[in-house]
């Protein structure tokens, strides 16, 4: 990609995501109907002037649901990513600066986290929860869980980066000038680690969008009547698996297209490679 083309792509991505975010924030005004409103006389309808993207199996306006789903998925995935990266940074920094027991314990915890059967654990956690959690609470919790799971990989990367920085020439040189360890860490080490942490964050966002989709597939995450990208993707499941005439109901794929394009835009805007 030439530089000019790349700039244009980034510009387009930013514009697209901004529009999406604004539409999602203003969902209550943009969406023509309430997302949970059931038009039971027109179930599984094709797009029309009344329902721009048709209706789902319960007669709910797919366009309205998609906008509300975007609010949930696109705005909370970054929150989960932030949580996991904050956890990862804390653990990574602690593990890099504390040698010995604490560091080993932390990295051991990261290894365990990476190898746990999370699906089972998530199911268990969900079944232990109070039943009357509101859809928003259950959603927030799902993202919190995702964030709590997602820390391990980034923690390892951040720890490695910090350890490397700690023995770099400029850090030794700064200490040679008599600066305190904490000052060296805050002013000399951390700023250099920032790009690494940022890269972890931006590469986590699309991962969390898709993870939520997968959780919804399992009946976790967003529950009725709320919609998320995940639950909307789930709608396609039967159509895809059974392989009916897909062209006749192309509109069912609108959520998938939106998720795909958004994740693409995110990766264009924030390439996951570490910028130096």
């Amino acid at each position: 990609m030439t530089a000019a083309l790349e700039r244009r792509a980034r510009l387009a991505s930013a514009a697209f995501l901004a529009t999406l975010a604004i539409a999602a924030l203003a969902a209550d005004w943009v969406a023509p109907y309430q997302p949970e409103e059931q038009f039971r006389e027109t179930i599984a309808a094709a797009p029309s002037s009344r329902f721009w993207l048709g209706t789902d199996d319960l007669g709910r306006d797919r366009f309205s649901r998609l906008i509300h789903a975007t609010r949930i998925s696109l705005l909370i995935a970054p929150a989960a990513a932030l949580l996991s990266v904050v956890l990862a940074a804390s653990a990574g920094i602690a593990a890099a600066t504390r040698t010995g027991l604490i560091g080993n314990l932390l990295m051991g915890a990261a290894d365990i986290t990476l190898s746990l059967p999370w699906l089972l654990l998530l199911l268990t956690v969900r079944s232990l929860l109070p039943l009357d959690v509101t859809p928003w609470a259950s959603l927030t919790l799902t993202f919190a869980l995702l964030g709590a799971i997602g820390w391990a990989g980034p923690a390892r990367v951040i720890r490695a980066a910090i350890r490397e920085l700690l023995v770099s020439d400029f850090v030794i040189s700064a200490r040679g000038r008599g600066l305190s360890k904490s000052r060296v860490f805050l002013c000399h080490v951390l700023p250099s680690a920032r790009p690494v942490v940022a890269a972890q964050f931006w590469s986590a966002v699309p991962v969390f969008v898709l993870a939520e989709a997968n959780l919804s597939f399992l009946g976790l995450g967003v529950t009725e009547p709320a919609a998320s990208w995940g639950t909307m993707l789930k709608e396609m499941e039967t159509v895809l698996a059974v392989g009916g005439n897909l062209l006749n109901q192309y509109w069912v794929f609108a959520p998938a297209a939106l998720v795909f394009v958004s994740v693409l835009c995110l990766t264009i805007l924030f390439p996951s490679r570490i910028s130096t």
Binding site: F170, V171, I172, G176, R177, L179, R194
Partner: peptide
């Protein structure tokens, strides 16, 4: 360090904090 014994490090460019 830096007051009674000071050090000029060998690799000058990498010895200054880039940020």
């Amino acid at each position: 360090r830096g007051r009674r014994i000071a050090l000029v490090f060998q690799s000058a460019v990498s010895s200054l904090t880039p940020t």
